[in-house]
Design a protein around this nucleic acid. Structure first.
Lengths: 336, 336
DNA sequence: TTGAAAGCGCTAACAC
DNA sequence: GTGTTAGCGCTTTCAA
């Protein structure tokens, strides 16, 4: 069997409490005793049982990351960032995918919460804007932090990227290439990022004294298929754009497909930009100029804030909004 | 505070053991008592504390999925399948990404193991062929199941897909289209799937009485960049293929890029097939004919087997090798 | 600065 | 069938 704290205490000739103090880096232990205990720990290969300390200490050191998102690249980067930070601070990350459209969402999450006994939760969009879910967590007194929330008024901590500014920047980039007829394929209406990106697009046009024309604004759904439909509309209607801003890379890839089928050369006849820096943006030809959100960074900071929140410390001054980066690739060029 | 088993016992007027029996569906409780206990449970909103039962019962109901894989789509499907099955059997899944090339791999995994206290582990390729890791788990008496192992001689349970057969099928499909000069871009040498897929390719050619010519066999690394290099070689050398089997979709996408740059039309001048059914295979034009592994299924069965293994039950007759499916898309056509 | 004792919430072992 | 008791391995409380 595994060595317990008692075995260590016996071997070191001290009390279990002293061992406990040493392994938890508590103060008030004389250096000599510390050495004694550490030697015994090494000798027995002692590892403390996190289950037991969780039970007694009334905290599990588990954080749950709850998400509902169909974008594998995004989710994985989120997971990796969150895991890294959580582990660095002595926590374990438990992931919990779900479908925010399922009928028994809240019920299922409640079951999961009771099963996992986490100390806190990380909520991503669109779940972090679900009022029922928020209420459930508050009723159960589970601290949470939100990632990219739509509603920023709630008093729980949150972290997000500056979608409005990034959309502004990429639209501006198209303008700087000489484009004036710039279309946008918007994202899914349920997502908080959708209006933000549209606002950035509008601001860029307006600041350059350009009009936002309704026939260049299409409503997509973040899927490849929706992008295809919108692109076909844009490229067959009378008022044709010379540049298209698709609000994610899947839809941008769809624009490329439609353009290829219509023998429209990208980028010489049509510039295309996406959003997210998804793997496809590099795996397609021409590769797609896009926006990279610092997802891993965002996840890390969300974990930090959550832990501060759980410890009831101040988390208000932690930076909450991260800037994105433009990634210039081969789908954009000067207007012909 | 939350209600405990004692509170339930008091309210129901029974002993804690009876409550324990009821909530764990143990036999030997009279129906009348069952009702009594269930009513008290509902009234108090009692949920059993899994930490306490884990401590007492010497098992945590946690399974860890350990992986080292750069393919987000693959990893996510694996996770989702494993989570679903684990939850269905009352287990929680903990995920643990790592990098199989990192210097302190074993050490880090050991730390993680001590931290998480899982009842069992799921190992994916290439980790499941790491002898040091296997030894670590055996020394720590942690049961494990392997997913897509290269070495199938080890006596632990494993699940995989039939790579050889799938590669045979897709090569055969190209042959059926009239192609005779079929090139292959092999995967990374560290991966067990690489030789299997090559064997399937060779078998298909041989069964049709065709030669495997060395100049049509290129060594890739599963990355887009490696695919690009190999494709450029294949399409510029004297002996040009009319069809290319890239051993994953990233490399197939790279073939499409090179072909586009060289004004080679796919599929009319060149047929291209990939492997994995990665998102890019649908998001690119032409969309890529590929092989879909039943990853979620594989993950589910691996969880089942692992749980049987943990319970020391027989797991030998559970099916271990799953067939893949061909997904026909637009990157292939009859030879001109 | 150190230690003894109590107990976190549950289940195993055994008695009735 | 049902209940009592002990104890999983740790941390907290409080006394020394």
């Amino acid at each position: 069997m595994r060595a317990t704290i008692k075995d260590v205490a016996k071997l070191a000739g001290v009390s279990v409490k002293t061992v406990s103090r040493v392994i938890n880096n508590e103060p008030n232990v004389r250096p000599a005793m510390q050495e004694l205990v550490k030697k015994a720990v090494d000798e027995l290969g002692f590892k403390k049982n996190p289950l037991a300390s969780a039970l007694r200490g009334q905290r599990s050191f588990i954080i749950t990351l709850l998400y509902s998102n169909p974008n594998p690249g995004y989710v994985l980067e989120l997971q990796n960032g969150a895991i890294e930070q959580a582990n660095a601070q002595g926590y374990n990350l438990q992931i919990q995918p779900c479908d925010h459209n399922q009928p028994n969402l809240i019920e299922n999450i409640e079951t999961m919460i009771n099963h996992a006994r986490q100390d806190g939760m990380l909520l991503t969009h669109p779940l972090c804007d679900n009022q029922e879910l928020i209420k459930l967590l508050e009723d159960n007194k589970i601290p949470f932090a939100r990632i990219s929330p739509f509603n920023r008024e709630h008093d729980s901590p949150f972290v997000c990227s500056d979608d409005e500014q990034a959309a502004f920047d990429i639209t501006n980039f198209l303008i700087s290439l000489g484009h004036t007829d710039i279309a946008i394929i918007k994202g899914h209406q349920d997502f908080g990022a959708t209006p933000k990106r549209f606002e950035g697009y509008q601001r860029a046009l307006k600041e350059m004294g350009m009009q936002v024309s309704d026939d260049l604004v299409k409503q997509g759904e973040f899927t490849f298929e929706s992008g295809e439909v919108c692109a076909r509309q844009l490229l067959t209607q009378e008022h044709k754009p010379t540049a298209i801003f698709a609000c994610n890379d899947y839809m941008a890839a769809a624009v490329l497909k439609v353009a290829a089928q219509m023998k429209i050369n990208v980028p010489s006849d049509l510039s295309v930009v996406g959003y997210d820096d998804a793997p496809v943006s590099q795996q397609i030809w021409p590769s797609i100029t896009t926006v990279k959100q610092p997802i891993a960074e965002i996840a890390k900071h969300a974990v930090q804030k959550l832990i501060l929140h759980m410890q009831k410390q101040d988390y208000s001054d932690v930076q909450t909004q991260f800037p994105c980066k433009l990634v210039l690739r081969n789908s954009t060029s000067l207007k012909a």
